[in-house]
Amino acid sequence: MSSSSWLLLSLVAVTAAQSTIEEQAKTFLDKFNHEAEDLFYQSSLASWNYNTNITEENVQNMNNAGDKWSAFLKEQSTLAQMYPLQEIQNLTVKLQLQALQQNGSSVLSEDKSKRLNTILNTMSTIYSTGKVCNPDNPQECLLLEPGLNEIMANSLDYNERLWAWESWRSEVGKQLRPLYEEYVVLKNEMARANHYEDYGDYWRGDYEVNGVDGYDYSRGQLIEDVEHTFEEIKPLYEHLHAYVRAKLMNAYPSYISPIGCLPAHLLGDMWGRFWTNLYSLTVPFGQKPNIDVTDAMVDQAWDAQRIFKEAEKFFVSVGLPNMTQGFWENSMLTDPGNVQKAVCHPTAWDLGKGDFRILMCTKVTMDDFLTAHHEMGHIQYDMAYAAQPFLLRNGANEGFHEAVGEIMSLSAATPKHLKSIGLLSPDFQEDNETEINFLLKQALTIVGTLPFTYMLEKWRWMVFKGEIPKDQWMKKWWEMKREIVGVVEPVPHDETYCDPASLFHVSNDYSF
């Protein structure tokens, strides 16, 4: 037999072997998808029940369902290793196997995995149920939502704001400190077992692309791009910072340095994350009609249902689908009040099986009107990829998912749209002054938050990498806050605090 014939037969044999492996992989994935749908849905439903009704029974049910899901994933991840990716030609099959071969938290021992889940659930519970009591009246206690958040959004009393700011960190942050220390250790162990340098590197892996249509993007490039983007917006932020400082000097004349940092408790919310609520103090042309339409919403008797129905109309107007019937029947759109304790931070849920929901303790404000559009943007994205195989139902990356939500809320905030839905009067006219007011309001929300987020994530990356010793977490946190964000702590904090974890995203294990 000629050498060319042998070569042809060899190629046929290799192709047949690849085809056999690929067919086996497809069969394996079909079985996995069928089983995963049910187990993931049960786990998601148990998590939803806990988040909307925080009880010991629900946390136990959530843990049990989560353990079943984790055990299943660990088993299936091991089985998926049997299919070598280099022998799979079908890109859809390869991407699913690649996702499943990534072990995630299931790489930890059973004891450590359970401990990590306990830590995460405990931190979430402390954050959502933590109360601050009035020292003069111990029976008068406030949760973060709505009590403390209400103070931080609306109060102009310097000392009341300081009390709310400090009490939240003292009551909740200190409880979270030992848990967060354990969390860092276990998450790093999980990341390294998955061949990442640390948990920050694991997060950045979400943005990594290897040879898809000839395109590559590394975790290191992400760090470079983040640094570059921050340097680009820094001059604009510094101008905004100086303008806000001048306006705060008028409101709090004896508390603000004309050349120094801004006190952290005066920036519009509990964390200084969004400066939106400073608009009334900083509006350049106050004689113009108010483009913050909160009062109009209240006057027109809007409620949470109306807010979300208007958001749905907005999405339908640009060619996107209505929310499902189940969305309206199962979402929690208002604070249950004293009936039950719930996690009030707005979140969009894709539970699986076409079950999409939003959890939000909606208030009738323009801020929540825009947040509703943001969260519904997440749901629209979830619905758009719902037909994909189970392992591919995700956003391109976390940042893109947020961008989908944010672009919709930005569009909904324009005076033209607000006028079209009757929240600005029919005779409202846009001119240079109203446009400047609008742009300032947008800058308070968007530009003001960028250094906050950059600095927070930089601190977390450094902590996970071990570049900040545990006994210097708070020292470095406030050094970076002053240097990068231009914000100063109103009272000193020692290493018993854990100020970063006083933010939902940190205590609940979300990256930005």
Rank of each mutant, 00 (worst) to 15 (best):
F40L: 06
H34W: 08
L45A: 14
A46N: 11
S19C: 11
I54H: 11
F28A: 15
E22S: 07
Q42T: 02
D67E: 04
E75Q: 00
A25N: 14
L73F: 09
K68W: 12
T20G: 10
M62E: 13
Q76V: 00
L91D: 05
L73I: 07
V93P: 00
N61M: 02
N33W: 15
L73N: 09
H34C: 13
F40M: 01
S19T: 04
E23Q: 01
K26H: 10
K31N: 14
L91T: 02
E56M: 07
Y50I: 10
F72A: 11
Q76I: 00
K31R: 14
N90Y: 00
Q60G: 10
Q60N: 06
N64G: 07
I54E: 11
E57A: 04
D38P: 15
E75S: 00
M82E: 14
Q60A: 09
W69P: 12
L73C: 08
Y50P: 13
N51T: 14
D38H: 14
T20K: 08
L91Q: 04
Y50A: 04
Q76P: 13
A65K: 02
Y41M: 14
K68A: 11
A71P: 13
Q76N: 14
N63H: 03
Q24E: 11
Y50S: 10
D30H: 13
Q96G: 12
N49F: 01
L79T: 00
E37R: 14
F72D: 13
A65G: 09
L79P: 01
P84L: 12
I54Y: 10
L95R: 03
Q42G: 11
F28R: 15
A65C: 05
L95T: 07
I54P: 08
Q24H: 14
Y41N: 14
F40A: 02
Y41D: 15
A25R: 15
Q24Y: 15
E57H: 02
E23Y: 00
K31M: 11
W69A: 06
Q102D: 01
Q24W: 13
V59K: 05
F40V: 10
E22P: 12
L45R: 14
N33M: 09
Q42V: 00
A46Y: 10
N90H: 00
L29A: 13
A71T: 08
L95C: 04
V59G: 08
Q24R: 15
Q76W: 09
N33E: 02
Q98K: 05
F72C: 11
V59E: 07
D30N: 12
D38Y: 14
N33F: 14
E35L: 09
Y50Q: 12
Q96I: 10
D38T: 15
A65Y: 02
V93T: 07
L39R: 00
Q102K: 04
E22D: 08
W69T: 00
E22H: 07
A71H: 01
E56I: 01
E35S: 15
Q96C: 10
A65M: 02
